[in-house]
Design a protein around this nucleic acid. Structure first.
Lengths: 173, 173
DNA sequence: CATAACTTTCAGGAAATTTTGAAAAACGGG
DNA sequence: CCCGTTTTTCAAAATTTCCTGAAAGTTATG
């Protein structure tokens, strides 16, 4: 496959994946483009490559910066800004985990803590089922959250080696 | 908090979380409602509780059945169908992992495998960066995929105990 | 400061997704 | 079979999300 086709395919795939994960298509595509581009790009170049408007490019670049996945760069003697993506994928993954824990897991944990203390008769099946579900859910979400916290504080190699040593690796990556 | 308020709050929170994870709000809400309800419910009752149309209820119930999170039940001597959710949250989580691996991780892994074999001069920074990013991404996604496969085949207690023993538990769940 | 180069904002429109409701299909007695 | 009941379908409407482009804002420089 030629580089341009591969890039195109990669950008499309990443965009599609993003849209299954609450990240909008264009944002994922801008990120993909920057990921596979060695040098940093101006807004103009990004608009051109992905055929999107100035406003759209700007919005999504800001969002990516907000997520800590993209940075601005100022080239000497140049007025315009250039953008580049963090290329170390483990760092990218960690960053995404940090943000999603903060934005989604924490709020839902808070609600689960609140509602699992509902008042009422434990013998009422309505109450009993509610408390059981809420408590179980809280436990699992909380355990997942803790695990992700570990991931976020780990070195990539150590993390996966430990993981697969522990559970017995299934097949070669 | 009263049971009804707690239910309401729980259903809203679960709906909001779902929408950050590519699952539509109503589907998550129907699931939440069934999760906290001890007995099974008819379409009619679900429509009433969540104030949604017949068609909408039907569509989302089918989708939930498709995901393996909800089942139909036929009560003796009754014509209409009743629905109930799997209450074991670990099973629910496993089911979600199974489906998302199949629907999202596998396709993206396939694309990454394809594109990382792009032809071209390794000394060309364009090609080099592309291959590096694609290869790295493939590695991490693949490792995550393998880890999730382990989770899907594990007993809940064994899984988390092993995990936290290995990495040192941070705090009590 | 004035200007040109660039960035940000945002109201309006386009597109995508979700929901509705009525009609058609399926089902199960009698 | 026929009929009343329940489920499914699907085109159109409503809603939500996303994108555009022009205008306003900012900033470096002569």
């Amino acid at each position: 496959m030629q580089l341009d086709d591969a890039k195109e395919k990669f950008i499309q795939a990443w965009g599609a994946l993003g849209s299954h994960w609450g990240i909008n298509r264009t944002m994922a595509q801008v990120h993909a483009l920057l990921l596979v581009t060695p040098e940093s790009l101006s807004a103009e170049e990004i608009m051109g490559s992905l055929d999107i408007s100035r406003g759209n490019a700007n919005m999504n670049l800001r969002a990516l910066i907000d997520w800590g996945l993209v940075s601005k760069e100022h080239k000497a003697g140049e007025r315009r800004e250039y953008f580049y993506a963090e290329k170390d994928i483990w760092q990218v993954a960690q960053q995404v985990i940090i943000e999603r824990r903060k934005r989604e897991l924490k709020p839902v944990l808070k609600v689960l803590e609140e509602v699992k203390n509902v008042e009422g008769d434990q013998n009422d099946p309505e109450v009993k089922t509610f408390i059981e579900s809420a408590t179980n859910l809280h436990q699992i979400v909380s355990q997942a959250d803790q695990f992700l916290e570990i991931a976020v504080n780990s070195d990539r190699n150590w993390f996966f080696e430990t993981l697969f040593r522990m559970f017995g690796k299934k097949k070669q990556a």
